[in-house]
Design a binder for these strands. Structure first.
Length: 319
DNA sequence: AAGTGAGGCAACCGCGGACTA
DNA sequence: GTAGTCCGCGGTTGCCTCACT
């Protein structure tokens, strides 16, 4: 029947961080009397706290069986796996991780794992590859959009470290094209700002449409990832050339801005005749550090999208 | 060295279920 | 059947630390 009225109105009770003295009182009391009724515990322990506060302090911090320190890779994987089944049922997930509290797991998810999954192109809610183009665009570094605003300037000022970012963006665009197997995704271009006139916008579209060939093996590499939709895997198991595949799959890439509608043609072939089989051979030449036989899609894709770790790889990919 | 913003984490809030009188 | 109380849970807040400018 809802929350206890006393805990709402009683302003005399202390809130906020616990002192060492309070911790000691709480621990001593629980050692003597056990947890029993949390409502009565503050009186027994001579604490000016509500029972709820005592319970939280004990279960989330003072309990002797709590495991401290950072989460191990195994624990990370377990959390991700369990989250895919149970969603935000933190207490259920915590029950599978001895010594970890629901609060700790929840915080770890929100501050680390969630972002890690997003960076890897995985939707943390569904645990499937992100198909929302707007969301993917939002994941790109802000500087990318700054560069997009002035593609010509950008083209002439490419610095070594920018090449990495450029490569990521280009490949990501290509991924989006391949993934867009159905009705054209509409890109929310509000992020471009109001200053972009139609001429500049046309330039932007031309820039997004690759002038350079897709002559590297990143797409098949991604196709090895188990989380990629079945259609994509099927495509890369075929003997079609990449341009053919993209022409089939993209059939234009709808982008809307104001009242204007733009669409992109399929990727231009510059590696005519390059079959996916050839490309797959090239894939094997890419060395991803620390990739074991047990590496999963998350780790693989995570490596590709990780800013630091994959810098050289992305440069290689684009070159 | 000081200011500032982002990230991490402990603690709080408020809801709903279970239990009881 | 109803109302009061307690407990557990998920969401949110606010403080602290640290990196960056």
């Amino acid at each position: 029947m809802g929350r206890s009225p006393s805990s709402i109105t009683d302003n005399r009770l202390k809130k906020g961080p616990w002192t060492l003295e309070e911790d000691k009182k709480l621990i001593d009391c629980i050692h003597k009397h056990g947890t029993g009724s949390w409502q009565l515990l503050p009186k027994k322990a001579d604490l000016n706290r509500c029972g709820k506060s005592c319970r939280l302090r004990w279960t989330n911090y003072l309990r002797p069986d709590i495991k401290r320190g950072s989460f191990s890779p195994d624990e990370e994987q377990t959390i991700i796996h369990l989250h895919s089944f149970h969603g935000n049922k933190w207490s259920t997930i915590a029950s599978h991780l001895p010594g970890r509290t629901d609060n700790e797991i929840k915080n770890f998810w929100n501050t680390n794992l969630r972002k890690k999954l997003l960076r890897s192109g995985i939707d943390p809610n569904t645990h499937q590859p992100i198909t929302d183009v707007n969301l993917l665009l939002n994941l790109l570094p802000t500087s990318s959009f700054t560069n997009l605003m002035d593609p010509w300037k950008y083209a002439f000022k490419l610095q070594a470290d920018q090449v990495t970012e450029f490569a990521k963006n280009r490949v990501l665009q290509n991924i989006l094209r391949v993934l867009s197997t159905s009705p054209l995704p509409i890109i929310d271009t509000n992020f471009l700002g109001e200053s972009l006139n139609s001429s500049q916008y046309g330039e932007l579209i031309n820039w997004i449409n690759p002038l350079q060939p897709l002559s590297n093996p990143v797409l098949p590499h991604i196709a090895n990832i188990e989380a990629v939709p079945e259609e994509l895997t099927t495509i890369f198991n075929s003997n079609e050339t990449i341009p053919e595949i993209l022409d089939h799959q993209t059939n234009g890439f709808g982008i809307s801005k104001s009242h204007a509608e733009y669409s992109l043609p399929g990727l231009v072939s510059a590696t005519t005749g390059t079959s996916t089989a050839n490309i797959m051979d090239s894939v094997n030449s890419i060395h991803i550090p620390n990739q074991s036989l047990t590496s999963n899609s998350f780790e693989t894709f995570g490596y590709l999208m990780d800013d630091d770790a994959s810098s050289s790889l992305w440069k290689d990919i684009y070159q």
